[in-house]
Write a protein that binds this DNA or RNA. Structure first.
Lengths: 355, 355
DNA sequence: TTGTACGCGTTATCAG
DNA sequence: CTGATAACGCGTACAA
C-alpha cells in the first residue's frame, strides 16, 4: 500500500516522465521537444525524433491543468453562457453562436471548453464563484443577457482574458463583440416610415439588458430622424401575454398607430403576444397594420408569416468573438467590434393604410 | 529579475496560503475548511469561522487548474464528432445531440471539451493522430459516421474511456449508445404494409455505415415478416440526385412498387432526390404513391410535406452517452444501450392505390 | 484538532 | 546539448 490507488480516469494516461524513460532522455528534454523549444535551445535531431516517436507511441497529450498551473497555456477557449431558459430547441440556445465560435476556434488551433451548468441551469448555476471555473481555459467567451457583472468584473480586473458576446460597456476594460442593434432597429423603423407609417409603437419586455435598450434607442433615433411623433412610442410589457391584447391593439389603432414593432428576446413573448393580439382582433398584417420584429423569430413561428425585421448574424458574432479573444491573448489588445445585422424584408409589413 | 514576470492572469489572486496567514492557521486547515471537509475531520467551529471570514475578506476563490491537477482528474468530458460536412445549419450538425450531452454532463458535474477540427473540417481534421488529443479529457464521446476505427481502437485498447454515439459492434470493447434503427425502420415498413402496400423500395446511399445497414436490415425484416416480396427492394444510389429520376420512378411504379422509403443521411440526398423525382413525374404523395423517410428531414424541407417516418431521439442519445461514459469512468463497466425512435405519422404515406 | 510533508504534471532556470 | 531542481496552488496521508 505504498502507492495510492490511481484514479481510474488517469490509468494509462502517459506523462512526460514516461515518454522520457521510453526515449532514454530526461523529462526536461521531453518538455523542451514537445513544448516547441521556445528557448531556442539546440537539440540533436535524433534526440528530438526519439522523443517524438516515444510520445506518439504512448499517445502522450499534455495535461491542460498542469500546463495552466505552470503558467503556460493550454489552447483551450472557454464558453460560458447565460441563456434564460434551458435550450430544449437548439435554435433557442447559444448553439447558433457556437457554430461560428467553433469554426473560428479551429482556424486558430484552439479547442473549446463548454462550461455546463450555465445555460442548463445545472447544479452550479447561480453559485457564487461559478465563473471562476473558466480559469481552466486560456481565455473565455461569455454570452447571454444577465451575465453576473460583479463576477465578470473580478475576472477582468485580475487580467483574465474575457470577451463578452453582446455589447457590455458598463464593465470597464471588458472586451465584447456586439450586434449593431441600434442601426438595425433604426433601419426597420426607417423602412416603416418609407412605407408611410407615421406612428410606430415598440413593444419591449421589462428588461434593461443592453440588447433591449439599444433597440429602443435605434427606434427612437429613427423616429426623430424621420420627424415622427415619438410620444408613447415605447411600451414596456412585464407580461406581454396579458398586457398585449386585442383590446389594447384596437386602442392604439384608434390613436393612429399603424405599425407595431416587437423586440426579440429569449422567449419571443413580445412577438408572440403581438401576433396573438392581431389574430384575436380579427385583423391581418400587413393589410390592416404592419408588424416588425427586431431580431429573428422563435423557431416555432418562423414562417407563416415571416416577420419583417432583421437577422442577428450569430455565427459571425461567434467568430468575431473568437478573433477578439485570440488577439487579446496574443497581443493584449482589447477590441470591441460591432457587427451589422442584415435587414429581412419578410411579409408582415406593408404600406400604411390610408387614414 | 529574480522573479519571473507572473502571468497577468494570476496576479493578485489570493491563495490558500494567504488565507491561512490571515486566519492564523495552516494552509492545510484552509483546504480542509474550504474543501467541504470530505474526510469527516472535526474542526473547531471558531477555526472554521476564522478561515471562512479570512477567505471572504480576501475574496479567495480556488484555482480550478490546481484543483484538477491535485485531484488527478479534469471533470472534463470530450466530444469529438465526425460529421461529413461543416454545420452551416445547426440542425445538420451534432448540436442536437449536444443538447442532451450538455444537460446530462451538467448533472454529473462535468464540463465539456469540444474538439474542433473534427466536425468543422478544421486544420487538424484527418491528420493521423488527431484523435489522441482527446486524452486531455477524462473520457470522450465520439459521434458521426466514419469515425476512424483504427485510431479509436488504439484509444480503447489503451484503456481510454470512450463512448461512441451510434452502434459500433466491430470495435471490441468499445461502449456505444445507439438508436434502434432496425426496429424503427421495420415499424415504418409495417405501417406501409398495413396501408396495403405490397412492394416497397428502400433508397439508400452508397455507404456502409452501421446506421445505413441497420435501416436496411429493419426494412428487410419487416418485409419478410409481412410476407412481402423483397426482390429489388433495396436500391443503392451513389449519387441520388442523378440516379433517382422521374423516369426511374415511373419504371418502378410500373413494376408494382407503391411505396418508397429513403434513408436519412447527413445531406438528405436520398430523400431530396425522391421528392424531386415525384414532382418531376407530376405525381403526388400520398395520393399516387407513398413516401417515407427513415429519420428526420433536413431543416430546409422539414415541412410541406412532413415526411412519414421516425424521429431520432438525439438529445436522449446524447444524454444516454454521457451516462454510459460516467458509469464507465466510475465503475469501469461498459454498457451499450439502444434507444427507441418514435414513429412520426407525417403525411407522405397513405393507403396503397388500388392496382 | 492542527500542522508537516509530499505529490499531481508541467514549465523554466541554471549549472554541468 | 542535458539533467537536477524549484515553483505553480491544492489535496491528503500521517504525524504531532
Amino acid at each position: 500500500m505504498t502507492e495510492h490507488p490511481p484514479a481510474k480516469a488517469r490509468r494509462g494516461r502517459p506523462r512526460q516522465a514516461e515518454v522520457a524513460r521510453l526515449a532514454g532522455v530526461s523529462q526536461t528534454t521531453v518538455s523542451l521537444v514537445l513544448g516547441g523549444n521556445k528557448q531556442g535551445i539546440v537539440l540533436h535531431p535524433d534526440t528530438r525524433a526519439r522523443v517524438l516517436e516515444a510520445a506518439k507511441e504512448l499517445g502522450y497529450v499534455p495535461d491542460p491543468a498542469a500546463r495552466r498551473l505552470a503558467a503556460a497555456r493550454n489552447n483551450l477557449l472557454g464558453v460560458f453562457s447565460f441563456t434564460a431558459t434551458f435550450p430544449t430547441a437548439v435554435e433557442h440556445s447559444y448553439y447558433p453562436f457556437l457554430v461560428g465560435v467553433e469554426q473560428e476556434a479551429a482556424v486558430h488551433g484552439y479547442d473549446l471548453v463548454l462550461f455546463t451548468g450555465s445555460s442548463s441551469g445545472g447544479a452550479q448555476a447561480g453559485t457564487s464563484g461559478a465563473l471562476e471555473r473558466v480559469r481552466l481555459a486560456d481565455g473565455c467567451l461569455f454570452l447571454g443577457r444577465h451575465v453576473p457583472a460583479d463576477e465578470l468584473r473580478r475576472l477582468v480586473e485580475h487580467g483574465y482574458p474575457a470577451v463578452h458576446i453582446g455589447r457590455r460597456d458598463e464593465l470597464e476594460g471588458l472586451a465584447w463583440v456586439g450586434a449593431d442593434y441600434v442601426e438595425a432597429s433604426a433601419e426597420v423603423v426607417r423602412r416603416l416610415a418609407e412605407l408611410g407609417h407615421r406612428r410606430v409603437v415598440l413593444v419591449r419586455e421589462d428588461d434593461d439588458a443592453p440588447a433591449s435598450t439599444d433597440r429602443e434607442r435605434g427606434v427612437r433615433e429613427a423616429l426623430d430622424a424621420a420627424g415622427l411623433d415619438a410620444t408613447d412610442a415605447v411600451v414596456r410589457a412585464a407580461d406581454p401575454a396579458t398586457d398585449i391584447t386585442a383590446d389594447w391593439l384596437r386602442g392604439r389603432l384608434t390613436e393612429g398607430v399603424t405599425a407595431f414593432v416587437a423586440e426579440e428576446t429569449d422567449t419571443g413573448a413580445a412577438w408572440r403576444a403581438l401576433l396573438a393580439a392581431v389574430e384575436d382582433a380579427g385583423l391581418d398584417a400587413p393589410a390592416d397594420l404592419s408588424l416588425a420584429l427586431l431580431g429573428s423569430p422563435p423557431a416555432d413561428l418562423a414562417e407563416r408569416p415571416e416577420p419583417t425585421g432583421f437577422d442577428i448574424p450569430r455565427a459571425e458574432l461567434g467568430a468575431a468573438a473568437v478573433r477578439a479573444l485570440t488577439t487579446l491573448l496574443a497581443t493584449g489588445e482589447t477590441e470591441s467590434p460591432l457587427v451589422a445585422c442584415a435587414f429581412r424584408p419578410g411579409n408582415t409589413a406593408g404600406p400604411a393604410p390610408a387614414p
